[in-house]
Design a protein around this nucleic acid. Structure first.
Lengths: 150, 150
DNA sequence: TTAAGTGCAAAAGCTTTGCGGGTAG
DNA sequence: CTACCCGCAAAGCTTTTGCACTTAA
């Protein structure tokens, strides 16, 4: 993500906070910036590590609380993955994922043909679809290499 | 899954164990059966609860170990989801998921149009795709209802 | 018989909660 | 000034590890 776009997102966040009467603290801004700056799909703990590099003594509970709040606000998303720690996604627009079944890492991909998926009727499940992701599952470079070494 | 199919899968498991010289214990059979019998996508803990109903005193570590082993063998899969506890999937064939972003529940769906997704070239990422899932994300019946009540 | 599997206990890893002091508006 | 946020500590879940005993083949 470009520095310009990150600034813009942070400004948008400030506006939303003002509108809702939520205090826009240094911690909140640093946490959002940490997610937007990353190119992968970090866990809460990884975000915490990034944030504390700049702003010492931001606590883990605050990171968890704020990340959840940012998801609620729709500024970031949660990524679907096969592992155990929740992973966050700086992108909320239509895009897709390469998911490594060995190390659970996720890589973003964009492809117009994947965007063109026809969402089927899910009314019989009582389920309301808001968006979709195509997950291409397999092995990433690292895990592939380790596999070959065996 | 039909009782007949479950029997068949268990038999297949026995054969694989024999071939590999792995002891086919009561615990292993009970754990595989527990996953195959469920219609949802249980966590390891939920599998443990199901198993201990029949076979008292199967330990949690055993459930975790065996589930991982079954995934390695390709008899069951892991489901991608936005939550924190790993979820298992009795189906390993091509199918897709409705994923609730509120409660992380997963519902299987089959749709020929979703199966027809054209997998793009991922060589530039060094990533080897083995299969794919389309994840339709949104809110399940329960969470939708709770949302309306607010 | 014997190699491997299992249960137990404990530790490690991830996430949430409650509360008193601190701070943005 | 005041309501809300934050850090701390502690608890709660989820998963893994090491070891001695048991068991399938």
């Amino acid at each position: 993500m470009l520095v310009r776009d990150i600034r813009q997102e942070l400004e948008r966040y400030r506006a939303i906070c003002r509108a809702r009467g939520i205090p826009c603290t240094r911690q909140r801004l640093a946490i959002l910036e940490a997610v937007l700056t990353r190119t992968n799909h970090p866990t809460a703990d990884e975000v915490h590590a990034t944030v504390t590099r700049r702003l010492r003594s931001v606590s883990r509970p605050t990171v968890y609380r704020v990340l959840e709040e940012l998801v609620e606000m729709g500024l970031i998303g949660k990524a679907c993955h096969p592992g155990k720690a929740v992973r966050f996604d700086r992108r909320t627009d239509l895009h897709h994922h390469l998911v490594c079944l060995r190390c659970n890492s996720i890589i973003d991909i964009s492809d117009p043909r994947l965007d063109a998926v026809q969402v089927p009727d899910t009314r019989k499940y009582g389920f309301k679809v808001s968006d979709f992701r195509v997950q291409l599952r397999g092995l990433c470079t690292k895990c592939l290499k380790r596999e070959e070494e065996k």
